[in-house]
Design a protein around this nucleic acid. Structure first.
Lengths: 232, 232
DNA sequence: CGTGCTTTTGAATAGTATCAAGGCCGGTGG
DNA sequence: CCACCGGCCTTGATACTATTCAAAAGCACG
């Protein structure tokens, strides 16, 4: 990672950043204390089992949060982009192997725990926004629990694609705005790489998507939603 | 549900209740505004797709939060007990079918959204505690995503039993403190009822648990942990 | 223009859901 | 008090879905 010049949060173009919910003098204080870094595609922001001493605020970029198994089998548990946060720890006691890596070049601001804590106590609006973010994410992850348990592989892939669209959006109208490997789609859907390929072919034959090398074009989002809506 | 007499939160025996983190006058204010109800085993606290206008604080009891599928196939996404909360909604826009029901007689306090919101703004410690709770739960559910994707059925059952123990604890030393049907264990593990039974028999043959009608005795928690720890 | 990684397809295998049936209570009403 | 009924639990057999293993084709990069 490459440390960046510390521009003030006040002038930061990321309008979604939670820090913006603090009072002006706290924004300035965090500005001075934060450290901003650039991560290249594939680089890790933090890795499993190492304690985390603060919160990472994503300025720009695309991040995957994954849980790595014994055999190295990756499971992506969450995706994050501009304005989202990483590195939360419950009460800090328990550790379980979670890691975060950049899916694309990303710029991330890190703020240490004790500064964050003081900020929480003095900026209820900030704490409130953070709480709502967690609550929102909790609901999203809860929904995925059901997906994992009850969907067929093709439905899981459809669901994964829609999740990618929800978080990263489109470029050129209907092309998923993320460069991701089949193996990573598999890790997101929670199935094998081979089945992922077969399911993608399925969906292509049904004219719901089009494969363009690594890029995926969503031809019929509505039908894709319908494919999985039986479970929602 | 049966409305209860409103004792003050100050005298409430539930020491884990988040409301206790508010300032004394706010505790009193919430005391006056809250409504307390008793739910019998099997009763619903709220049901899918109906908007929720506040937060439920569990005083005592055992709750399952589930997502109901198209075919009525239940998936339990989370368990909750004394001191936990229910009914959070992200930013209130999206709805997805989640419902909560009592696994055992439960007493729950309900506080309306606008009161909660004011409380958040005036009690940073309270908001902070709530935020940490959500962050903690988020991490727990993330871990379960991986379980669902990569474990075998028997491992899923072992994991479900340990989760039940973590939330509800033991009675008589080593008996799970919850009266739950096989079908519900299946809904928690995300597998079929039949496989659940077979897996329980498996675990019993391996001397890790003992079945006593509906009650389950954990004979070797350490080995049970080891069974699933390959994935953690 | 190799070399290695990713993607794709095929075939065999294993694991799980589903279907079917019998047994085991617990509760209810005669 | 007993017999019946219905839901829950259990076991077996079968079908199916998805994983795994193996191999070839495509692509990116030096």
């Amino acid at each position: 990672m490459i440390p960046q010049s510390n521009i003030s949060c006040r002038n930061c173009p990321n309008v979604n950043c939670f820090i913006k919910s603090c009072s002006p003098d706290w924004i300035q204080l965090i500005s001075n204390k934060k450290s901003e870094s650039k991560y290249k595609k594939g680089q890790h922001i933090f890795i499993a089992s190492k304690p985390i001493f603060g919160i990472y605020f994503i300025k720009t970029g695309k991040i995957k949060i994954s849980s790595d198994g014994w055999n190295g089998k990756e499971q992506i548990v969450r995706l994050a982009t501009d304005g989202h946060i990483l590195g939360h720890r419950g009460y800090g006691k328990e550790t379980y192997p979670i890691s975060a890596a950049a899916l694309d070049e990303s710029v991330i601001c890190f703020v240490e725990n004790h500064i964050i804590y003081e900020t929480f106590m003095e900026n209820p609006g900030f704490t409130y926004i953070m709480m709502m973010f967690y609550a929102q994410e909790l609901r999203a992850v809860e929904a995925r629990i059901k997906d994992m348990a009850q969907m067929t592989t093709t439905e899981k892939v459809a669901s994964a694609l829609l999740y990618l669209k929800e978080v990263f959006g489109y470029t050129n109208g209907d092309v998923l705005n993320v460069n991701i490997s089949r193996k990573e789609i598999a890790a997101l859907a929670g199935i094998s790489e081979e089945q992922t390929v077969r399911s993608l072919t399925d969906l292509e034959n049904k004219k719901l998507i089009a494969k363009m090398k690594r890029n995926i074009r969503i031809l019929n989002e509505e039908m894709l939603q319908k494919t999985i809506s039986l479970y929602r």
